[in-house]
Design a binder for these strands. Structure first.
Lengths: 96, 96
DNA sequence: TTATTTGGTTTATAAAATAAACTTGTTTAT
DNA sequence: ATAAACAAGTTTATTTTATAAACCAAATAA
């Protein structure tokens, strides 16, 4: 009746990050922080979790002299997101 | 860009309870427990939270000699659910 | 009559989310 | 040149949640 909701994606901030990366294909820390209106600490933690799960790939480098953290969604991330959305439907679509 | 997700509804079990009550209009503890595959303790706690928020109304009585806890969604609950679903769309619908 | 089951509630534990504090290095102003 | 402020994060601590384990009262079964 109700499909399990992947707990890694069932989090407001992580879901927003994934949603952003799905559309943007690539985004850096500062941009994600702005778009999601999150704090740096929270964002740092949640990006790590998504990265550890293999849902995103994080590349650290510099732009000029400033450190830059760039994120990309992986294929596994895309699949997990699609599955999550599918599972959500079992909750939000009326059961006749 | 991303709408806030009502934290009271952004919980797997509470969402399932609300989803059930939206379709069923009324359901008792045992039925909800079965359909959601939840434990009694967890269900008890989450029903209390939904009730405290005014999203459901709990009526305790007896059926024969057995205690019975019956739940109904309130209008506030219906509204909150609809808003939650609307907010969700800001995460799962692609942003062009 | 003493288990066992039913229908829960309460309390304790584990996990998560979030915020506050800190680090490292870079500008900017003095 | 030096100090103050800022940028980009990370780490640690705190609060909140979710979940499970333990418990309770009443009814039924053995």
């Amino acid at each position: 009746m109700f499909k399990d909701l992947n707990p890694l994606l069932h989090s407001e901030l992580r879901l927003a990050i994934m949603s952003l990366l799905l559309s943007a294909e690539e985004a850096d820390f500062v941009y994600i922080k702005e778009q999601t209106k999150s704090t740096a600490g929270n964002l740092s933690v949640q990006l790590d979790k998504l990265s550890s799960a293999g849902y995103i790939k994080i590349a650290k480098g510099f732009i000029g002299k400033k450190p830059n953290t760039s994120c990309k969604i992986t294929n596994a991330g895309r699949v997990a997101f699609a599955e999550y959305v599918d599972a959500l439907k079992s909750y939000i679509i009326p059961h006749p």
